[in-house]
C-alpha cells in the first residue's frame, strides 16, 4: 500500500541549524504526530514536504514527487500553519469566494455549515478574531475541499483546553468520514497527540530520535523508579535512558513487561509521551 507521505534522506542546511537525514512515512488512514521542542525541526520538515523550502533528499506525496507534481498534489492537501494565513484583513465570507477559485473540489455548503457549527462570524475581519476562532477558521478552510491529507503545524498551540478539544474533535471527524485520509500534525503539546495520533515521530536537533506507534510507546514503555544500588543491577542493554534525581534513579525501558519479570519489579510506571521525550533529551545513557 502506498503511503500518504514518504520522506527519504531529507536534509536542509541553515547556518545555525541542520535537518539531517530525515526518514519517515505517513501511512494512508493514519494520524502521525511530529513532536519535539521549539526549534527541533518540526516546521522545517513540514515546509520541506510542502516545497516551501528547497531540500536535499526525496519526498513523495500520494506516490508522486512533491516537486514534479506540486500543483496536482496540493489539490489533495489541506494545510494549517500556525503563523500564516491568506490575509488578516478579510472576512470568512471573502475567504470562501477566494478559496473556491483555487480548489476544484471546494465545498461551499460544507464551509458555511462548519462556520455555523463553530460559530465563526461571516462578516468580521479575521484580525479581530480570537486565537481560537482564527485557528478554527484555518482548519475549516483546510478541510473544505475534502483533501486526502491534512498537514497541520502547531494547530493547538496557545489555545485553551476547551478549544483544543474542539479542534481535536474536528480532526477525528475528518478521519472518520473517509478512512483513507491521513493527518500529519506537529505539536509540542504531546497530550493532544496521545489522544489522536497513531504514530509518533520524535525529532530533536534536526534528527529523528524515534518513529513508533503511539500504542507501543504508551503500552510497552515504562519508567522504573529505584535506588542507586538497584539501578546498577540493571543491565545497560535493558534500558534506553536514565535520569539521576535527588533521591532516586528513573530509568526508561521499552519492554516493561519483560523487564518487570526479569528483575522481579513490583511496579513500572506508565510514562506519558512528554516524559519519554524528556528522557531522550535530558536523560543519560552509559
Amino acid at each position: 500500500m502506498t503511503n500518504a507521505i514518504d520522506l527519504k534522506k531529507v536534509s536542509k542546511y541553515y547556518p545555525d541549524f541542520k535537518l539531517q537525514n530525515i526518514n519517515f512515512s505517513v501511512p494512508k488512514g493514519a494520524i502521525v504526530g511530529l513532536i519535539g521542542e521549539n526549534g527541533a525541526g518540526k516546521t522545517t520538515t513540514i515546509k520541506s514536504i510542502l516545497n516551501i523550502i528547497k531540500i536535499e533528499g526525496n519526498i513523495t506525496v500520494l506516490g508522486k514527487d512533491h516537486k514534479d507534481k506540486e500543483k496536482e498534489i496540493k489539490q489533495e492537501l489541506g494545510v494549517v500553519l500556525d503563523d500564516s494565513f491568506l490575509s488578516e484583513y478579510l472576512t470568512a465570507k471573502a475567504i470562501n469566494s477566494i478559496m473556491k477559485k483555487f480548489y476544484h473540489n471546494w465545498k461551499e455548503d460544507q464551509y458555511y455549515s462548519y462556520l455555523k457549527k463553530f460559530k465563526i462570524p461571516l462578516h468580521k475581519l479575521i484580525k479581530d478574531f480570537s486565537s481560537g476562532m482564527k485557528m478554527k477558521l484555518k482548519i475549516i478552510t483546510a478541510i473544505s475541499h475534502q483533501p486526502q491529507i491534512l498537514i497541520l503545524d502547531e494547530p493547538t498551540s496557545g489555545l485553551d483546553p476547551i478549544v483544543r478539544n474542539e479542534i481535536l474533535e474536528m480532526f477525528r471527524t475528518y478521519i472518520l468520514e473517509d478512512e483513507t485520509r491521513s493527518i500529519l500534525i506537529s505539536s509540542h503539546i504531546t497530550t493532544d497527540l496521545e489522544q489522536i495520533a497513531d504514530y509518533i515521530v520524535f525529532i530533536h536537533e534536526g534528527k529523528i530520535l524515534f518513529d513508533l506507534p503511539t500504542s507501543q510507546l504508551l503500552e510497552n514503555y515504562g519508567i522504573i523508579k529505584c535506588k542507586e544500588q538497584d539501578f546498577h543491577m540493571i543491565e545497560k542493554n535493558d534500558y534506553l535512558h536514565y535520569k539521576k534525581e535527588k533521591y532516586q534513579y528513573e530509568v526508561l525501558v521499552d519492554n516493561k513487561y519483560e523487564i518487570q519479570k526479569k528483575y522481579k519489579l513490583k511496579t513500572i510506571d506508565k510514562p506519558t509521551i512528554e516524559e519519554i521525550m524528556l528522557f531522550y533529551v535530558k536523560g543519560e545513557k552509559e
Binding site: 515546509k47 516545497n51 516551501i52 500543483k71 496540493k74 503563523d83 500564516s84 494565513f85 483555487f102
Partner: peptide
C-alpha cells in the same frame, strides 16, 4: 504589505499554484 503583515507568502505557497 498586506501579505507581509499576515505572513501570507508561506500559506500561499501551500495552495495549488506554481
Amino acid at each position: 504589505n498586506y501579505d507581509e503583515s499576515s505572513k501570507a507568502d508561506k500559506f500561499i505557497l501551500t495552495l495549488p499554484l506554481t
